[in-house]
Design a protein around this nucleic acid. Structure first.
Length: 285
DNA sequence: ATGGCAGATGTTATCTGA
């Protein structure tokens, strides 16, 4: 099965692009961020017509997250992170789909640093880390997918020295991400493509996409109970080149339907073989 | 350091994003 995440930067303005990508990539589950639409203006009819059911949490003008499913309907288990009843921003929604728990998140940007927005980002991140821990303890198969607004390492940004004091790369934020991973999560795109320069976002400014001046800030994290089913993972960077594209590209993972009983070595060869068959030539890892 | 582009709101401009 394919599980993906896509910051669409306006779900209504992006609808033709989103529908094109859904038809092409055929994900089973998709997390969306930055709907930029109030609850009643989520394009549910078009999404149903494309074969998906959905849960979503909209908000006027900003933020907004959704979980789409092509198979069993998502059953919403939570909207909003625990830990701050004052926080009204639509940045987190969670659902069960079969035996999977899917968490869709849009972590605050946090710029400029220093300032209240950066403080809010750190507080939100800590609430998320706390909540993620409870998921791990449950032992269920959990996927955390979304726009984390953090480049985890220097490999994940085209010119790290320029981003040192940016809220997406500040050491406090990278440290928080590292602490999250250390709980036991697998960063699927990195795991499947070690050492490779892979980006998920390219600024609209300065010809960033053509220059490949990108950032890897969208992530798909797997709990241990599903990480052993990872077959391949990557980014559909070509979708960033379409007309009226979002500034983000979709990220995806391919998971085996049944737990693997193969050895690590034979699993690696399966990975290569299957990736070749499944993936569109335009798709890059 | 600035400003470049884009979406939403709802103006003839402002805010936010990353």
């Amino acid at each position: 099965m394919i599980v993906a995440t896509y910051n669409v930067n306006g779900v209504n303005g992006r609808l033709p692009v989103l529908l094109q990508w859904l038809a092409e990539a055929k994900p089973d589950i998709l997390c969306l961020q930055e709907l930029k639409a109030p609850q009643e203006r989520f394009p549910i009819d078009a999404i149903r017509h494309a074969g998906f059911s959905a849960v979503w949490h909209g908000q006027k003008s900003w933020n907004g997250v959704a979980i789409l499913s092509r198979g069993a309907a998502p059953v919403e288990t939570r909207r909003g992170l625990p830990g701050d009843p004052e926080d009204e921003q639509s940045r987190y929604i969670e659902a069960e789909i079969g035996d999977l728990t899917i968490a869709c998140l849009y972590l605050p940007n946090g710029n400029p640093w220093p300032g209240p927005k950066f403080d809010y980002k750190l507080r939100w991140f800590e609430r998320f880390i706390t909540h993620a821990k409870t998921h791990l303890k449950s032992g269920r198969r959990v996927i955390l997918a979304g726009d984390f607004n953090v480049m985890p390492t220097e490999l994940d940004v085209y010119r790290p020295e320029r981003w040192i004091d940016d809220a997406l790369f500040r050491i406090e934020v990278r440290d928080a991400y590292a602490r999250l991973i250390k709980q036991g999560w697998t960063d699927a795109v990195r795991q499947a493509n070690p050492g490779q320069r892979i980006y998920t976002f390219w600024d609209y400014f300065r010809n960033a996409y053509a220059r490949n001046a990108g950032l890897r800030i969208d992530h798909i994290l797997l709990s241990p109970s599903i990480a052993d089913r990872l077959v391949a993972a990557g980014v559909d960077r070509h979708a960033r080149g379409w007309e009226k594209a979002s500034d983000h590209a979709p990220s995806w993972v391919i998971l085996e339907d049944e737990p693997s009983k193969r050895t690590r070595a034979s699993k690696a060869s399966l990975k290569g073989g299957r990736a070749k068959k499944r993936r569109n030539p335009a798709r890059t890892g």
